[in-house]
Design a protein around this nucleic acid. Structure first.
Lengths: 196, 196, 196, 196
DNA sequence: AATGAATGAGGATTCATTCAT
DNA sequence: GATGAATGAATCCTCATTCAT
């Protein structure tokens, strides 16, 4: 009554369990690329297709739409944490890493811009949690008396800059982000990913 | 904001051809109310239902999803224009009106926040056009040497504040918006709609 | 981002609102026929296909799986009620009508057999309600001192007979049903639909 | 009924090839428990998970959905056969054992109720075969002139009682089953599993 | 000019089954 | 012999859009 596995068709190769880790990584990568362009509100099937796996694989690794988004954003957040924890981290440098991610990924913008609510993805706990990790990382390297030292100002400023990041090219987005930071009187840079 | 007793499930009988203008208005009102709560990414059928008209009417007045959004946002923009054109308009006052609209409407936020792209609605020319009308209106009442007087700073600041506007209640959103303006060193207020 | 109406394809004719009533009837008929053979646990798409309508039409008329089942079973129940309310209704005659429906429809069997729970269709209020309507109809024409006059015996007996109704052909099912009634010491017949 | 601490989410490590027999038993046990609650229409993956084995193991031992169902029901049937073959078996006693199984297992109900067709499981030969074993066992201990002595009456009565067995609790199901037997004028009891 | 039904494609999700390791 | 990941078809449901009346 239920499933017809189309008995006589041949299936295009089961690459075996070895592929599991690779598939997971491929999914995260595919999701990141697609999110960067289209935001979080994309058909999951598109992610699976781009990763070159079946729909089921996506669901196996990530039980819901939220899970894959978390996996992607989590990597962004981790880089910021690493940048903040590194030797000689400066506010300007860490904010530069953060800004780099903002200019890379519409998804990450969405996360910080507001509450993470976006189209099909309802605002959920994960957004708050990731957002708080970013906040902790940033605050940890803020010196006494920093321009954004007041409790609420830090993430407010981040949200504001996120709101300003638009434009078709990375260059343009970075330009606007820096202009926004300047308008806030905050020194930021260089804008680049964190590299151990 | 509400001129029709649209209780979401109303279904009056065919009101005849005379209702054409009224239907248009009802659709815009319904769309505004729904957009305010749910953002631009809602089923069109819901707007028609709330307006108490058939789906066909919506398509007659607004050929596509974009058109109805424009009609709604256009009213917001017009109010800002009126506020800017009024006797004794001050930057603080006009920005207060703008801020009020930001706190009212998720749709309006989207318009100014970035490029207007949101869920099913691709970024389109109308966003730029409306955005430019807002810019002209604001700049028109900016005195020499205003904090945001530099060419690019004005709309950048607006986008930044838009990015900061979040929260479940109007009160909370207004609070964050004002905090954002303060962080930018811009005086704004009172936050209220424009009334002739 | 969402819907692609395959712009350039032509659609196979919208027969217009006139078709509404006809479509509804066609759906109920299709569902009845399919239910009779396969039980309640069939893909809804199959019903729509058999009725010659799109999936959407089915969902318009019947918001969920339960609704279409109710519509089908309701007709069975109504016939029994009519039979019970008719001039000169006898227990044997009314039970004959009931038995006829049992032998026609696997769905109806499921309703009376137990609690209506069946595969994808969870046991729901509607089953109980319809079942009670059958009970009221039957009880209303039971004379004093009938073999099944005791409060719980009536529907218990019906459930028992339902359990006995099996077989590939109508003839065979009717035969088993009558044998079951006989084993219970209840006179039933003739087995036939009610005709005003 | 339970010999494995199958707490539904257990996932032990690979227990090695020696576990083959144990795995088979665990699968049957898991299937029985799940069938009892949810009927035959459950995902096979759930059975494997509960048994604490991989899906492949299930397919190794039971080539298709039918096979695992047969294995489960077969144990029920065997108990009835044993009860019937025991010293001093009485019709009432054996029917009591049969009734106990009816009240335990939705699956067993389905077997005897009709033709074994249920949701994803098409009616198949195995149902008939198991059903016949039950019949032989019962008939073997029926004395001359028993109420159900006529050739067709015995299994008809069993089917009828199966049809009456419903309800959320074992107690309720047993109550209804006994009421059904009483309505048939057959003495049955006690309702309990067979113990050597 | 309005109504609202019909259409059908699209996206989410589930599972039976296979198969590399 | 066991594991459990991969596959992808099938089903559910929603909605944008058209169009007969």
């Amino acid at each position: 009554m239920t499933q017809h596995p189309t008995s006589e068709e041949r299936r295009p190769a089961n690459r075996g369990p070895k592929a599991a880790a690779g598939n997971r990584a491929a999914l995260v990568t595919a999701a990141r690329e697609i999110y960067a362009v289209h935001g979080l509100d994309v058909p999951l099937s598109r992610i699976a297709r781009r990763a070159g796996v079946g729909q089921g694989v996506l669901y196996r690794h990530f039980p819901d739409r939220e899970a894959i988004a978390v996996a992607v954003l989590e990597e962004n957040v981790r880089q910021i944490e690493q940048a903040a924890a590194a030797e000689g981290a400066t506010p300007a440098g860490v904010l530069g890493v953060l800004t780099w991610h903002l200019t890379q990924s519409a998804a990450f913008i969405g996360l910080l811009h507001a509450d993470g609510a976006s189209g099909r993805l309802p605002a959920h706990a994960f957004a708050r949690e990731l957002s708080e990790r970013v906040e902790r990382a940033l605050r940890g390297c803020l010196p006494e008396g920093h321009r954004l030292g007041a409790p609420d100002d830090l993430m407010l400023a981040v949200a504001m800059v996120s709101g300003a990041v638009t434009g078709p090219t990375h260059r343009e987005r970075a330009h606007r982000a820096l202009a926004a930071w300047r308008l806030l009187g905050v020194t930021v840079g260089p804008v680049r990913p964190f590299e151990g």
